[in-house]
């Protein structure tokens, strides 16, 4: 393990350690907010597998998140607590099935067409729940009783926090292990040069479809947790706004790194809370979209490699101009 790898592992371990301590110090509101953030982190990780891991820019990721969420609510019994052992796999499976279907068709296209086709399929799912009575139409539906896992009641803020925490770690570790495996390396090869992978003997379509389906399943897991936490779902969970937001999360954090998705989700939710805060921005907090948007534009302009690239950029400043020029040349060479 190189020095660099060690510092990355320490950084990730520090994040998870901080999250393990948080519920003992924070308020109920804070714990609730961090739970939401961890759910978005799972969601962002699912997209990172596609965008950063495979080079597929999916602009319809919210569909899988929303389908996971709707499945959780629709499959819950009305008056008794549902079982997590049934609802969670069911939500993940439904999302994965839709991803398999969408992937099978959309992966026949490339580049901007792929982006548009995934968006179209997500909007299709959106209008199905929006315009039919299947999921309560525009109002959405409520999960009246939260599910349980043995003695654990997910209606409890603390319990849900820990379940989400464990699942976030599980997803992170799974994706980290996956990216080092032969499957993960093949996806990386496809990201850089799919043609070369085919000439080498890899049938790339099944690889991409598998990645797309796994990604949809993980997004469905996030959706399940979101539905349980909020106790309600509505069509906005499948809208392109959310697909866009999760894309912004991984761009903000730094594409190509799992920890980028993690940091990006936290940065995004914190920024949103910040600009929504009346205590800080007063009247302007009504226009929080504006503040959030400008901050995102500024950070993308100033941090081309995302927040994970920040230490490297500082390092370059400290090392001075000569080194910076040398490194720029290296980057250019690497692109050639």
């Amino acid at each position: 393990m190189t020095n660099n790898d060690t510092s990355k592992s320490v950084f990730v371990a520090a994040i998870f350690a901080a999250l393990a301590i948080y519920p003992f110090t924070g308020s109920e509101f804070g714990t609730d907010l961090v739970t939401t953030t961890m759910v978005f982190a799972i969601f962002a990780l699912s997209l990172e597998l596609l965008v950063g891991g495979t080079g597929l820019v999916c602009f319809g990721q919210a569909a899988f998140f929303g389908i996971g969420a709707y499945s959780a609510v629709l499959l819950s019994p009305q008056y008794d607590p549902g079982s997590v052992a049934i609802l969670l796999p069911a939500a993940v499976l439904t999302a994965a099935l839709y991803a398999l279907f969408v992937g099978a068709l959309s992966l026949r296209t490339k580049g901007v067409y792929f982006i548009m086709v995934t968006l179209a399929f997500a909007q299709m799912a959106y209008f199905v729940v929006h315009d039919t009575s299947l999921g309560g139409g525009t109002d959405g539906i409520y999960m009246t009783v939260k599910p349980t896992l043995g003695a654990i009641d997910l209606g409890d803020t603390q319990a849900l926090y820990w379940v989400t925490y464990v699942l976030l770690i599980a997803v992170f570790v799974f994706l980290a292990v996956l990216s080092r495996s032969r499957f993960g390396r093949a996806l990386a090869g496809i990201r850089v040069n799919e043609q070369r992978m085919r000439a080498t003997g890899f049938s790339t379509y099944p690889y991409k479809l598998a990645a797309f389906t796994i990604s949809g399943a993980i997004a469905g897991l996030g959706g399940f947790l979101f539905a349980v936490k909020d106790g309600a779902v509505n069509p906005e969970l499948m809208s392109w706004h959310l697909s866009g937001s999760v894309l912004v999360m991984i761009i903000l954090g730094g594409i190509g790194h799992l920890r980028g998705a993690l940091i990006g989700a936290f940065a995004f939710v914190l920024l949103e809370e910040l600009f929504k805060s009346e205590a800080i921005f007063g009247e302007f907090s009504k226009h929080w979209h504006l503040g959030l948007g400008m901050t995102i534009i500024a950070s993308v302009a100033l941090l081309p490699r995302g927040l994970v690239g920040l230490p490297g950029q500082w390092g370059q400043h400290l090392l001075g101009r000569a080194t910076r020029r040398a490194e720029d040349m290296e980057v250019q060479n690497a692109k050639a």
Binding site: S181, R182, R185, Y207
Partner: peptide, 8 residues
């Protein structure tokens, strides 16, 4: 590709 736990 199915041996996802095994490092390449």
């Amino acid at each position: 590709p199915w041996a996802w736990w095994q490092s390449a």
